[in-house]
Nucleic acid binder design. Sequence first.
DNA 1: GCCCAGGTGCGGC
DNA 2: GCCGCACATGGG
Length: 302
Amino acid sequence: MLGRIDLKGEALNLDHTFGCGQIFQWRKEEEGWLGAVGGQAVLLRVEDDALFFRSERSLRDELERFLSLDLRYDEIIRGSDLDAFSLSLLRDYRGLRILRQDPWACLVTYMVSASLSIRAIDRVLGRISAGMPALRLDEHVVNDFPGPNEFLSVRRPKKGYLGRKWEYLRTAAAEATNGRLDFDRLRLASYDDAWRSLVLSKEGHLLGVGPKVADCMLLFSLEKREAFPMDRWVMRGLSHHYGWLLPEEVAVRIRKGKEALSRGEYAGISGRARSYFGELGGLVQECLFLHMRTAGSRPPSV
DNA sequence: GCCCAGGTGCGGC
DNA sequence: GCCGCACATGGG
């Protein structure tokens, strides 16, 4: 069926939204962006202030939620008090929306992502879902992503594949199936409580989930819009455009090409970023990430 | 071959 | 706490 969702003036740019790196396993086809939502394959395209979707059954509610169409970003941005550079980022990438991904798939994505390239991440996720039933839409095929239970019976592609990460993923899957890892509870918790529960507390502590992965989880699937994941690209962007958020010695070090942060440094900068950007933090972070990766911005060579 | 990629765990101070 | 290193995979 073909469905239409009126955007009511709210901006939606699918290239920015699916191309910015917040989600993997989506492809741009001639007819639009192809991926899986709610266990179905779907094609998305924006035209004339409306989102058109093609799928077997209607996905209206799922898509409104997935694309966070309930959020009026333009209004939030108008009411904000951000600096000129942030506003120019938000303008350049207008229509980039933070998705509400499935928490389990999101957790796997970012546990896998550690120290891999974007291409490698996409390839690994493809291998993980390769054995899943194919979701079809006309001539298009996508693989659904295995849930925690299904993941436990996914065959390791080859001996030693992903190394320790594979064991971490299996442990996380077990925690999710036995309920000790409770995504709904994390969704309802405050940013601080949810972050601590993912990273720090002995109970519920997940190997393979550090500060950055936790922030990605919180932002991309658990509705913590103030979460501000900081990877190498974002740190370069911060040192370049938001120097005042960083301790001087960290800014200097990054300009020399050493972006790695200690836990303490991460926590400190994250706190400053969250209090400065507020609920627009996650959105600015994604715009900055996209900007740093596409605009070819490099730190000034010192 | 070597370097770098959406970091994290671990052992050594 | 902080530092240095190992860790897997894939592309340039």
